[in-house]
Design a binder for these strands. Structure first.
Length: 828
DNA sequence: GACTGAACTATACC
DNA sequence: ACGGGTATAGTTCAGTC
């Protein structure tokens, strides 16, 4: 039956039938029906001719290519057609041959057959089928389309594929067209979370599974403990529970199934337990089981349902805007939703008392509730990134910003008639990584002191605007001098960039323009979607500088990255000079920001200088006024009397404090040191007087000496960043990690190891009174008994955190603790 | 055995 | 392997006297 529908694509997949590739796209109609489209296009890749290859030679090679056949185990793939085209490659016009083949999977093998000496490069055989499909058929993810096609109903076409699909409609596509109307789409989201005794995947039974969606709240368990909680459903055993899990997913029919760290834990665990119970975890629309691809990170894919591991999206797209010290579900929920996980101390199920099970069920449910709410909150971002980058949601939710930027480029090359550059191979990556670091940003050496009336300025999206302004990219770069170009004097040579705009900076300019446009629209009409859109463009713009310097990038260009830093440095130094020429004192500057003090002039005069600077700035570069602060504090380094960079504290007129770099904002310092430093910074900044701060410090020192500090204030947390065996230097947190492992406690890479420093057993001291033993020998796990090491917490935590602050006021803190002033100290 | 600088490590800034 | 360079600072480690 021929029909037309309004359709929004959600999940992309493909299959082979009789040696040919077909796309299988699952999505919804405007009426909420689940539909699977079957569609196809003629797969192809490109071979680019060397310059000046004669037309005759080109014809000859075309004929040879036309005859290529490649045999693989399951099929014979051959070239079905060839076309000669005028295209661009890295911004230069080229003659290229478009090579159509029967099966896209054989593109690589066919490309290998094309080793003619007239062929310069072979390209686009390394793009995924789905990416190619989206580009060729213009069926863009999460955008509405009009689809015309033939409904398949118990058809024998494609080996009866429609019979095996759990959808409302299977449509063989004839025609795809853009929809003018783009009504709001709300996906059906289902969040899940499991609880187990063993952390090793499949190592023990799954005790319970929670499922939370719109009008769905369930905890499934085979535990028999009675409960008043009406969302708990009891099953005979683990197998029954798993069957119910499958059944409920089918019933709910979600577009998105989501968990937290579910790529690495929940989904593989479910799969493993299903296997143990000889159950097929057939949750895919074709009743297939989840599949796992193992790269550096495990990834779980479900056919027809987008599996989102929310942790990965948060890590890649959200984390830089979060204050949370870890990306744990608890902290992230607290920050974004103002809600927390429920209290539950993990213990083996055999040790859980009868009345405690209710808490455990409730805890399990709450985790899914939080994940559900977080996805709701982040949906605008997921949606906008998907619409802008044009890759499937599954990829968007896992991509790093650099790959999002790259995918955007790939999907937009057509406008420039560009053939895509290939992904670097292993050796290429190796040699890129061998390259020395290029010279980066400028950081101003501050003079320690407490300053009044500090104004901050910063360049908006500085590196992106530099790339656009100077046209810095792989396709515009030249080692040799060329006409009409700009020159960057790099550490190891000169780099020229043509002023004729290249596609990279054109696309980047689009990011900047759109960011500006949607930000303005948002300011006029604030809503989540516009905010997410303008933010997405900002993130993509900011990622593009790192992208060009990233060894894994298709459009990697070391010189462009180095030149970006070079030109940025020039601009900020000029801006600093201009402020200084106009009699303003510059107190600090880092990369794209400048801080000045007003002294004898006023803010209006400073803004006039800003105007002057902006008039002289080239291209799309722009310096903005960021904010005023009534006081700002810069301190010395611990070693030497220079001012420390990347460390300062500000206070504005509303007494709001902004702290950068200080121990206060570092998670590897104990809470006491951070809190004390924070308090002292506040006392000093509020009225510019150190006396009260000093009194406070003395009180704290006394408390430490009298052992009045509770242990939770003294926990030191350090992240374990690699396997224990790989550490060359055994620092305290590694020692603790070893101890934990010996006691069979879970130790994972990425974990924050917690410990405190205890009084040494034998009080051996060196001549100058320092503890003889290494710190790691005094490090204890939090539940190990012992008394905290007064000397360590004074000399290695509190004093280092406050010493440099008081030094600004010529107060010697060290003397407070030891030596002559000790008596005085206890008078407080 | 005491001392010192280099190496290693974690974390922050932009 | 899955953005970049710049910077601070602690602890350990290895070399020297």
């Amino acid at each position: 039956m021929h029909m037309q529908i309004d359709f929004i694509p959600i999940d992309y997949d493909y299959f082979d039938y009789q040696g040919k590739n077909y796309a299988k796209v699952v999505g919804r109609t405007d009426e909420g029906k689940k539909v699977c489209l079957i569609d196809t296009f003629d797969p192809f890749f490109w071979a680019i001719f060397k310059p000046k290859t004669s037309d005759k030679k080109i014809k000859q090679i075309q004929q040879k290519i036309d005859r290529i056949k490649v045999k693989s185990a399951s099929r014979i793939s051959r070239v079905t057609n060839t076309e000669i085209h005028d295209k661009n490659f890295l911004g230069k016009p080229v003659k290229a041959i478009k090579i159509f083949i029967t099966n896209f999977k054989d593109a690589h093998a066919v490309a290998d057959e094309i080793g003619f000496k007239e062929i310069y490069k072979r390209r686009e055989y390394d793009l995924s089928y789905t990416t190619k499909y989206i580009i060729e058929r213009k069926l863009k993810p999460l955008q509405w389309h009009k689809i015309e096609g033939e409904a398949l109903n118990n058809s024998l076409e494609f080996g009866g594929v429609d019979n095996s699909l759990d959808v409302d409609l299977v449509l063989k596509v004839d025609k795809i067209s853009e929809s003018k109307k783009q009504p709001k789409f709300k996906p059906k989201v289902l969040a899940y979370d499991i609880e187990t005794d063993e952390l090793e995947i499949g190592g023990g039974q799954i005790l319970m599974i929670s499922l939370v969606g719109e009008k769905m709240k369930k905890v499934l368990t085979w535990k028999k403990e009675k409960t008043k909680l009406n969302y708990v459903e009891h099953f005979e055993d683990e197998a029954d529970m798993l069957e119910a899990f499958i059944k409920y997913i089918k019933e709910y029919d979600p577009d998105i199934l989501t968990g937290y760290f579910s790529d690495g834990f929940d989904l593989p665990y479910l799969r493993a337990r299903a296997e143990k119970n000889r159950i097929k975890l057939s949750i895919g629309v074709d009743n297939s089981q989840p599949r796992f691809s193992r790269g550096r990170m495990m990834t779980g894919k479900i056919k027809g349902i987008v599996h989102i591991d929310l942790l990965r999206f948060i890590r890649n797209a959200y984390s830089q805007y979060l204050q949370s010290e870890t990306l744990s579900l608890n902290e992230v929920s607290h920050e974004l939703l103002g809600e927390k996980k429920e209290e539950w101390t993990h213990k083996h199920s055999s040790k859980i008392k009868k009345h405690e099970w209710e808490d455990y069920f409730s805890y399990n449910l709450q985790d899914s509730v939080l994940v559900y709410k977080l996805v709701e909150k982040m949906w605008p971002d997921l949606l906008e990134f998907t619409k802008i980058v044009e890759e499937p949601l599954f990829n968007i939710s896992r991509n790093t910003m650099a790959s999002n930027a790259e995918d955007y480029i790939i999907h937009n090359l057509e406008k420039y008639d560009e053939i895509a550059e290939k992904r670097p191979m292993h050796e290429e990556i190796g040699s890129r990584r061998m390259k020395p670091k290029y010279e980066g940003a400028f950081v101003f050496q501050p003079k320690p002191g407490l300053y009044k009336d500090v104004l901050f300025f910063d360049f908006s999206s500085m590196y992106a605007s530099v790339i656009v302004t100077y046209n810095l990219s792989l396709s515009t770069f030249s080692e040799k001098k060329i006409s009409n170009s700009s020159l960057a004097e790099l550490r190891d040579g000169k780099a020229y960039f043509t002023k004729t705009p290249g596609f990279f900076s054109e696309m980047l300019k689009d990011f900047i323009d759109k960011r500006r446009k949607y930000k303005q629209e948002y300011n006029k009409n604030p809503n989540n979607l516009l905010k997410a859109r303008s933010n997405a463009y900002k993130l993509l713009a900011n990622a593009s500088y790192g992208y060009q310097g990233f060894f894994g990038a298709r459009y990697y260009c070391y010189e462009a990255a180095a030149a970006t830093a070079y030109f940025a440095k020039q601009s900020i130094k000029q801006a600093i000079e201009t402020f200084e020429k106009n009699k303003f004192k510059v107190v600090y500057s880092d990369t794209d920001s400048i801080a000045i003090t007003l002294e004898n002039q006023n803010k209006k005069q400073a803004l006039e200088v800003l105007n002057k600077i902006n008039k002289k700035l080239p291209g799309v570069m722009e310096l903005d006024f960021e904010g005023s602060f009534k006081r700002g504090l810069w301190v010395t380094k611990r070693t030497g009397e220079f001012g420390a960079k990347k460390k300062y504290a500000l206070i504005d007129k509303e007494d709001k404090i902004k702290i950068r770099g200080f121990e206060t904002v570092r998670r590897d310092w104990c809470k006491l040191a951070r809190d004390v430093q924070n308090k002292i910074l506040q006392l000093i900044l509020k009225d510019g007087n150190e006396t009260e701060a000093l009194i406070y410090l003395k009180k704290i020192i006394k408390k430490i000496k009298n052992r009045e500090i509770t242990l939770d204030q003294l926990i030191i947390k350090t992240q374990l960043k690699k396997p224990i065996e790989e550490y060359k230097s055994i620092s305290p947190h590694v020692t603790i990690a070893k101890k934990m492992k010996e006691q069979n406690l879970p130790v994972n890479i990425g974990m924050l190891i917690e410990y405190y420093i205890a009084e040494p057993e034998n009080h051996q001291k060196t001549k100058n009174g320092k503890n003889k033993s290494l710190v790691r020998e005094r490090a204890k796990m939090m539940d190990e008994s012992g008394e905290y090491d007064i000397e360590y917490y004074l000399n290695n935590q509190i004093i280092p955190a406050v010493e440099n602050i008081f030094e600004v006021f010529k107060v010697n803190t060290k003397e407070l603790v030891e030596g002559k002033n000790q008596k005085k100290l206890f008078e407080f």
